[in-house]
Design a protein around this nucleic acid. Structure first.
Length: 831
RNA sequence: GCGGGCGUGCUGGAAUCGGUAGACAGAGGCAACUUAAAAUUGCCCGGGCUGACGCCCAUGUGGGUUCGAGUCCCACCGCCCGCACCA
């Protein structure tokens, strides 16, 4: 090693990486040529690789570095295999943090946002991510949100955007309403504040129109099961029936939704949501009820949890099957916006109804008796002693003509009978609600609607887009700065009647609208004539591989699917789905807990790259675990990885020195061993890259490195070592783009390692003359023998018996022999 | 409560179809080089019995299928994630 120790050129990533990054930026080497709007070159396969664009709330954190590194290794590898890869980046740049910075520190939201973007962009370049900067976009630019507003108008025109009053979630801390998807355990997804309910008139997107397709489409996309399951649970499809009930006085009829029409004979009372229109109509002017309603409607989800309070209404309903009058209640365990907002209550078969009945001392009628798996009767139910509702299979009793039928059969018969009597119909319901997109915030895309006293809501003509934000908003006001701006909302006339009384809608759109279509805008972010080119969208969509965090399982990912389906139905895209494949990276944590500044366990990517270099950071992250698994930074060793890269560096320089000095060639045996190791590394690494198992790919590169080290231990050089080294550098390039770029140039090449083709193994080197076969006796390994490749069972068995260590276990009658050629022989003996 | 996933050395993790458990690393130990340290290079590194060859045990626990199970099936324990008054 003396020839290395004397080399002045030590591995110093900090001196080479920034210079290489600067050259890449200057020469725009990662700009896609030809670009996304032009035809794909002959023989190249287009591949849209997308990673979730960052929110610019500060510099990049370890989570960004993790996902960008996975994504970049994927992209660089695909390019080397000949794909024509679209790899864009941009910023999800609207949102509340900019507004908070404006309110708290007097910052200009635009300036604050762009300062953060510049910082993140510099870090992205420093870490060597190969994004195409020619397609960069920011959702807060008027050139972008103009088309977000166009999207709104398209949905409005299709009847998919509408305004209505509803009981909506309101976050007092963020001072805005939220979509259902943004409420987690009754609290605001952003800030954790408990949300309350308010009746407000707001804009919605009719995502429920696509509920079935959103559910079914999950079967055809390559996403992690947990994300698909989250979406399935969120959509929450259920099958049942709608059945009409009448009030006992026959003045009103009320439809209920039930999944258990078979239990209708057990419906002993009836419950309305407190806001149900029939109830509010009948109770109008009743001060007591108004007080109840006021209390109940302000309750948050958390306060509602588990409670079974109810209000006995001064009228009864009639059970259409038993004909008897049953008491009617209002209770907030029945939700106005699911089903029909009213239920038939069957305490014997529904746990919530059971609890309510017990609390209010209502009748529990047993109309089903439990049966086992083969229909045999089980312990019968008794209304007086049962402690919980029975939801299992059973046979109907006390149910008129349906007595004796199995429950599932009774369900079908009752649905059929209800239909024939005109009392109802089979019905599918979903839990999914329409997407509430209004936000009482000001750093977002204004909703392009004008409210006119005579014409009502009037869409802004597309030629007048964008409806731009004023740049002199006052963020110190109490309330919405946009609403309270002195002139903005009034500085408009009605597009239909030119009334000067018209005002602009003062709400902005949920930022998830901005991000629901950005992957389309990347195709031509500077095109000011249309939101995206339809022909290019046909070529590039769906996105081949999307990478990003699992926190968007039912937010961004569901909204984007809806938008693409709606745009497809308007003829703007051909694809049914936005993202064909999805990869969720794991979290980067520290000592088992989330990193945070306040805990003092925060590590940031820039810090690691300043110490060890970007290549070390990237390789450390990929080596730590499979992409989808969490990384505990306390368990990983950037030092160890840095040492490995230094070893690659020294090995390359050593080879150059030895070539220059005319070092002796490898022995015949040494050359053969190394060539074989090289071929094995190519086969193994290629499979690992395809499967995105970068951790084992790196392990195989380390193994190849060790083989090169062994081969050159005697001071020899030679073409086999050079070949092995160049192969190693080529396959390491997607993970460590800087050191490989530098070393390949030092090896005398004037083109970039990143423009190389992925290596192909000479598989003839992998064919063996002799193989090692494991010999088992009764399934236990008793020895290993070397035989000619492809040897038959008799030959292998004879060789095995010749081994003393094996033969000594063979006393007894040989009853069976299992032979897996070239791998294993199992001799089964009876003692 | 319902649905989904995961349990492998001291640690991160390997193990393509059911066929040599622990690849590749980290931490630790020993040695060479060095005045010394760092760096570098080499060796050791699941547990037990044994002087050694070797034998036994071992992939959360207990069963099952199989010539053979980390891998497949059943039950249990533990952990993680999603949904949860959705009729």
């Amino acid at each position: 090693m003396s020839d290395i120790a004397g080399d002045p050129e030590r591995y110093d990533p900090l001196s080479i990486e920034p210079a290489i990054a600067a050259r890449w930026a200057e020469e725009r080497v990662y700009t896609l040529r030809p670009g996304p709007t032009e035809p794909v070159p002959d023989g190249a396969e287009p591949y849209y690789a997308l990673t979730m664009f960052p929110y610019p709330s500060g510099d990049l954190h370890m989570g960004h570095a993790e996902i960008f590194t996975i994504h970049d290794a994927l992209v660089r590898h695909l390019r080397m295999t000949g794909r024509h890869v679209l790899n864009p980046i941009g910023w999800d740049a609207f949102g509340l943090p900019a507004e908070n910075a404006a309110r708290n520190r007097g910052a200009d939201p635009r300036a604050w946002t762009y300062a953060n973007i510049d910082e993140q962009r510099a870090t992205i370049a420093r870490l060597g991510y190969s994004f195409d900067w020619d397609t960069v976009l920011h959702t807060c630019d008027p050139e972008y949100y103009r088309w977000t507003q166009w999207l709104f108008l398209e949905l409005y025109d299709a009847g998919l955007a509408y305004r209505r009053e509803a009981l909506v979630n309101h976050c007092p801390s963020c001072d805005t309403v939220l979509a259902n998807e943004q409420v987690v355990d009754g609290a605001c997804e952003r800030c954790g504040t408990e949300v309350s309910r308010r009746p407000l008139t707001q804009w919605f997107f009719r995502i429920t129109d696509y509920a079935d397709e959103l559910l079914d489409g999950l079967d055809d996309i390559d996403w992690p099961d947990r994300v698909k399951n989250s979406q399935r649970a969120w959509i929450g499809r259920s099958e049942g029936a709608e059945i009409t009930f009448h009030t006992a006085d026959d003045r009103d009829e009320v439809v209920v939704y039930t999944t258990r029409p078979d239990t209708i004979f057990g419906a002993t009372y009836f419950v309305f949501a407190p806001e149900h229109p029939i109830v509010t109509a009948r109770m109008a002017g009743d001060a007591d009820y108004d007080a109840y309603l006021a209390t109940v409607s302000r309750r948050s989800d958390i306060e509602r949890q588990g409670g079974k309070e109810g209000y006995r209404l001064p009228f009864d309903m009639r059970n259409p099957f038993t004909g008897e009058a049953i008491p009617a209640f209002a209770a907030d365990y029945v939700l106005m916006d699911y089903g029909t907002g009213a239920i038939m209550a069957v305490p014997v078969g529904d746990q919530r109804d059971f609890e309510f009945a017990r609390q209010h001392d209502l009748q529990i009628r047993v109309i089903i008796q439990p049966t086992g798996a083969d229909g045999e009767p089980l312990e019968p139910l008794d209304a007086d002693t049962m402690t919980e509702a029975y939801v299992g299979p059973g046979v109907m009793v006390d149910s008129g003509a349906y007595d004796g039928l199995a429950w599932d059969e009774a369900k079908e018969r009752i649905i059929a009978d209800v239909a024939s009597k005109g009392l109802g119909t089979a019905k599918v319901n979903t839990r999914l609600r329409d997407w509430l997109i209004s936000r009482q915030r000001s750093w977002g895309a204004p909703i392009p609607i004008i409210h006119c006293p005579s014409c009502g809501e009037v869409p802004v003509p597309t030629d007048d887009l964008p409806v731009a934000l004023p740049d002199d908003l006052d963020f110190q006001v109490q309330g919405s700065p946009l609403d309270l701006h002195p002139t903005w909302k009034h500085d408009v006339v009605c597009p239909q009647c030119a009334s000067e009384q018209a005002v602009r809608d003062v709400d902005t759109m949920d930022t998830f609208v901005d991000s629901s279509w950005y992957f389309l805008r990347y195709l031509a972010p500077n095109d000011d004539s249309r939101p995206w080119p339809v022909d290019a969208a046909g070529r590039w969509l769906p996105v081949d591989q999307y990478t990003g965090g699992v926190e968007h399982a039912v937010l961004h990912l569901l909204y984007s699917r809806f938008v693409v389906k709606a745009m497809r139905d308007r003829g703007h895209v051909a694809a049914d789905e936005p993202f064909q494949a999805l990869l969720n990276q794991g979290q980067v944590i520290m000592d088992g807990a989330a990193m945070s500044k306040s805990k003092g366990n925060l590590v940031v990517p820039g810090e690691v790259s300043d110490t060890y270099g970007a290549d070390t950071l990237r390789a450390t992250m990929l080596f730590a675990s499979a992409p989808e698994d969490d990384i505990d930074w306390a368990d990983v060793s950037p030092t160890g990885m840095h040492k490995y890269l230094a070893r690659v560096w020294r090995l390359t320089l050593q080879q150059l020195d030895r070539e220059a000095a005319g070092a002796p060639a490898l022995s015949h045996q040494g050359a053969a061993t190394l060539r074989r190791a090289t071929a094995e590394a190519i086969v193994g690494c290629s499979a690992d890259y395809e499967a995105r198992k970068y951790n084992t790919a790196i392990a195989k590169l380390m193994t190849l490195n060790n083989a090169i080290l062994d081969a050159g231990r005697d001071g020899s050089a030679g073409p086999e070592i050079r070949e092995a080294l160049e192969t190693l550098l080529t396959m390491l390039a997607p993970i460590c783009p800087f050191i490989t770029e530098e070393l390949v140039r030092r090896l005398g090449h004037d083109t970039s390692v990143h423009d190389r083709s992925w290596p192909v193994a000479d598989t003839s080197l992998l064919v063996d003359d002799e193989v090692e076969v494991v010999v088992q006796v009764n399934g236990k390994v008793r020895g290993r023998i070397t035989v000619a490749s492809g040897a038959d069972q008799d030959t292998v068995e004879a060789a095995a018996r010749a081994e003393e260590a094996i033969a000594s276990h063979l006393d007894g009658e040989l009853v069976k022999v299992i032979h897996v050629p070239d791998k294993l022989l199992n001799l089964v003996v009876k003692a």
